[in-house]
Every structure is written in structure tokens, then in C-alpha cells.
Design a protein around this nucleic acid. Structure first.
Lengths: 122, 122
DNA sequence: GTTGACGTTGACGTCAAGGGCAAGTCACGA
DNA sequence: TCGTGACTTGCCCTTGACGTCAACGTCAAC
């Protein structure tokens, strides 16, 4: 596959794919004329990378985690990173839940304006 | 209260507080010599702003929501924003959950390396 | 009245994940 | 062989929420 094919199948821009390679996250073979060639597994890899990016894991951290995906083995340091990211994500979920609750309260108040809720009615 | 007090009580830098004011998110009185003065409610306000920032709500959107916090009333457009942000946050939570599951699988595999999981052992 | 912490504005720097453009090369069908 | 679309590298640009520095004013204490 060429880069455009991977882009189309993953929904990730070619610019982003080159960026991933630049960051060491995604490998590719080259043709004799220098064009990138990808295997099928690259699609899966890109999807995993995307998932991490979406979760707020920075590229440098992903770079440390990916070898462990391939080898199935984690050094103690990598293991610590795994658990730390897990904690970070859990905390982020709690923050999101709190913000959503705040929005819910606002939605509720604006839907049922009552004197207790609404200073302007008092 | 002066800006340093608010910073200390909220854990938000003075630079950030001035930025919030610049963005219209946070009001302040001024002394005759130009120094900012805050009421007690500013602390609560800053905490709310932080909560939204943490949840990924951009300052321009927060700016549209805050008047509704004060008035207890939301125009249809603001109401739509409220619900859209709610959706966005819910989606983000699902993304985080998916990423955490991916991490959990990795953690599990590295904790119990088995031939099925680990290509290098096959 | 001087010291030192705290305050002011303004301008520029940072960081990450790409976007966009330029100028050239490659692949492939007509 | 020509055209066209896909690809290459290299470079600067963008966005948001501040950090940082400069140059200066203020305030409370001693």
C-alpha cells in the first residue's frame, strides 16, 4: 500500500502519517524511487496511535509504549508508564464527569427556572 | 482580595487570571491606582472556569456559557451549546475508556506473557 | 525613605499535532 | 510522450492557554 491508501483507510491525513514516521511511531518500507510502502498491519497501528492521541497520550510516550505492543514484554519503566497513563486517563475521566455534571446542573436550571436556582428571579 | 490571593487560593497563576480577564471570563474591580480587586465569588468562578478548561471547553465557548450561570437563563442558542458540549464530553469519556481498555490489555499481557499474546514466544 | 514583595502592561516564546505551500519526482493511462 | 494525480522533502504557519521577560508603579514594613 502507498501512503494515500493508508490515509484513506484510516481517515488520517498523509501529512499526519509522515509526522508519525518522523516521530518514530510508524515504520514504512521504501520503493527504489523513495516512495513509502506500508503493510496491512500499518492500518491497525495507525488506529492504535490515533486512539492514544485521542486519549491525550503524547507522541513521546506512545513511542515508549509501542515496542511493548510488538514484543508483548514491558520493562519495569515501561510498565510504570503504562500504569501512570492509566491513572492519568482515569483522572481525566473523573474531570470530564465533573464538568458534565456542572453542565447538567446548568441545563437543569435553565430548563426549570426556580427562585432557588435563579438569582435574577429572587 | 488582590490577584495574588486569588492565585494562591485557586492554584491558578496570576498570568492565567489576567488571561481570563483578557478573554472576558473573569471580572475585577480596580483600585484608584489600577490594581485588580476581587470578591469572594471570584474564587468560585475561577474554579468553574478551570473545570471547563480541563474538560476541553475553549474560552470562547466558556464565555458564552458564563452569563447563563449568572442569570440562570439560557437562550435557545446557548442551550444548544450546552447540549453540544455535553455530547462532546460524553464522547470524550468514551474515547478515554477505549484507550484505557487498550492500556489494560497491554498491562494484562505484559503481566501474564503467554504464547497467544506474545509473538516473540511463538 | 528605602527595601522588597507584589502589582501593572506589553510583547514575545512555547509546545504539540499537524496544515499548507512550493518545487520537484514518480506512476500510469491514453 | 504527454498529462495528471500521487508522492517526495523542506519549510514556515496555526491554535490555545498560558510562561517569561522587561520596565515600571504600588504598598506595607521597618
Amino acid at each position: 500500500m502507498r501512503i494515500g491508501d493508508v490515509a484513506q483507510r484510516t481517515g488520517v491525513s498523509t501529512r499526519a502519517l509522515r509526522y508519525y514516521e518522523e516521530q518514530g511511531l510508524l515504520g514504512s518500507e521504501r520503493t527504489s524511487t523513495g516512495q513509502r510502502t506500508y503493510t496491512e498491519s500499518a492500518v491497525e497501528r495507525v488506529e492504535l496511535i490515533q486512539q492514544f492521541f485521542t486519549a491525550g497520550v503524547p507522541s513521546r510516550t506512545i513511542l515508549q509504549l509501542l515496542p511493548c505492543v510488538d514484543s508483548g514484554h514491558a520493562s519495569p519503566e515501561v510498565f510504570e508508564i503504562l500504569e501512570e497513563e492509566r491513572r492519568r486517563i482515569t483522572d481525566a475521566m473523573a474531570d470530564l464527569a465533573a464538568a458534565r455534571d456542572a453542565l447538567d446542573r446548568m441545563i437543569d436550571i435553565t430548563r426549570n427556572p426556580t427562585p432557588e436556582h435563579c438569582p435574577s428571579l429572587r
